[in-house]
Amino acid sequence: MSETKPNAASAFSSRIDAVLKRRRASVIEVVDAKSAVDLATAQSYSENVFLFVPNLIGYSRIILAALAMHYMNHHPKYSTVAYCVSQLLDAVDGHAARYLGQASKFGAVLDMVTDRATTSCLLCYLSSAYPQHALIFQFLIALDFSSHYMHMYSSLVTGSKSHKLVTSDVSRILWFYYNDPTTLFLICAGNELFFVALYLAHWVHTPISLSIVAVLPILKGLTWPELIALVCFPVSALKNVINIVQLWKASKILVGVDLVERAKAREAAKRDNA
């Protein structure tokens, strides 16, 4: 037993050294906050990040989301169109950023915050529309915000240039989710479509036409929104499983960084006491 402990400690120390080497290789420069504010205030029209095309698309998404919330309680058609267009534009701004060379940290955060806030507003409405399931919708809001916030923060402290740059050795699930654009779009779209279908199901009570039911009797009694919700439910469930994985992996990364920093602090204390 006396030999096992030193070996375990040595192995743990080696792991810390490996992490430190990785962090040194991916270290990013730190910008003074006051200097950054001054630069943003003095930026020229030709290089104004606030006016980048992808960010202008982001602002339009916010306006459309606000319109969707405005009409949500009394005009489901207008609300659904505004909400869906806002979400579809999420797939446009990324392409515009890459094509125009206008990718920015501000745009990435604006995009994520808009997604989180818009979906949460819809889930808040669903909580009131389906009070018996309010706890589930509240859980989904908490999971969505916490997993993305911790994932973004863990990306920053490990020096990653983007929260979407996840390697397969960290998580194969997150790597496949973030690094395959088609998968990312389909899962996100399916998740949003599930919530939109639940919203429309609250308003639409007309069953699917008898001609379709005659071909597919299993659809008897269902409305179109209910059918869409049933089809999209597995995708939405998968999206939230990914959120759980993202939360767990981000938590482990942050704990690992804590362990490295605590080990460095102990080494520094030993040198000072020597």
Rank of each mutant, 00 (worst) to 15 (best):
S10W: 12
A11N: 15
S14N: 13
I16H: 09
I16E: 07
D17L: 12
A18G: 15
L20V: 11
K21V: 14
V27K: 14
V31A: 05
D32Y: 01
K34Y: 11
A36M: 12
D38N: 05
Q43P: 01
S46N: 11
N48H: 04
N48D: 04
N48T: 05
L51Q: 02
L51F: 00
P54K: 00
N55W: 02
Y59E: 02
A66M: 08
M69L: 13
M72V: 10
V85C: 00
S86T: 01
L88T: 11
L89Q: 09
D90R: 03
H95K: 15
R98L: 10
A103V: 07
F106C: 02
G107N: 00
V109N: 10
V109K: 03
M112H: 14
D115Q: 11
T119N: 14
L126G: 00
Y130M: 02
Q132V: 07
I141M: 08
A142P: 05
L143P: 10
F145V: 07
Y149H: 07
M150D: 00
M150Q: 07
G159I: 05
G159W: 10
S162P: 06
S162N: 07
T182P: 01
A189V: 13
N191W: 15
Y199N: 02
H202F: 14
T206A: 15
P207G: 05
V213C: 11
I218V: 15
K220R: 15
L222W: 04
E226S: 08
L227M: 04
A229M: 05
A237M: 14
K239F: 13
V241Q: 14
V241M: 15
I242P: 06
I242S: 09
L247F: 08
K249N: 11
K249I: 12
L254H: 01
L254T: 02
L254Q: 05
L254I: 06
L254Y: 01
G256P: 02
R262C: 11
K264F: 06
R266V: 12
R266W: 10
K270N: 01
D272C: 01
A274C: 01
A274P: 00
